[in-house]
């Protein structure tokens, strides 16, 4: 059983994972790599929800369903993001985020 592991350890790992995602999102130049970082963040959030549900309200399932819906939203989000990326690649011949700045002022 995991009951003898404190919730704090899981939460620390979840938060670190989230901010590693943030770091990746800010530094990566490749749009797909940025998408990977975003997925990392989404996963971290879902993970934290599941953990808190498991430890704080084990009888109810609110956090559980939140995780479930987050995964579904992540799926939708990834599908649209990849469609956009492919379109960008087709139009700009690159997926470097710094090259794609046609919509500035």
């Amino acid at each position: 059983m995991i009951s003898n592991i404190p919730a704090l350890h899981f939460l620390i790992v979840g938060s670190l994972m989230f901010f590693i995602g943030v770091y990746g999102f800010l530094t990566r130049k490749n749009i797909i790599a940025m998408l990977l970082s975003a997925e990392l963040m989404i996963n971290a959030v879902a993970f934290n929800f599941a953990i808190l549900n498991r430890y704080v309200f084990p009888v109810h399932l609110e956090g559980y369903f939140f995780s479930l819906f987050i995964i579904a939203v992540a799926a939708a989000d990834a599908a649209v993001a990849i469609a956009i990326i492919i379109n960008i690649y087709r139009n700009f011949d690159t997926i470097e985020v710094e090259e794609v700045d046609d919509m500035k002022y």
Binding site: V22, F25, L26, V97, D101, M103, K104, Y105
Partner: peptide
């Protein structure tokens, strides 16, 4: 002011974070 709107997405994200 328009220099702030550089089209660099990561810059926006950084400001946001």
């Amino acid at each position: 002011v328009k220099r702030f709107q550089s089209g660099q997405m990561q810059q926006y994200a950084f400001v946001f974070v």
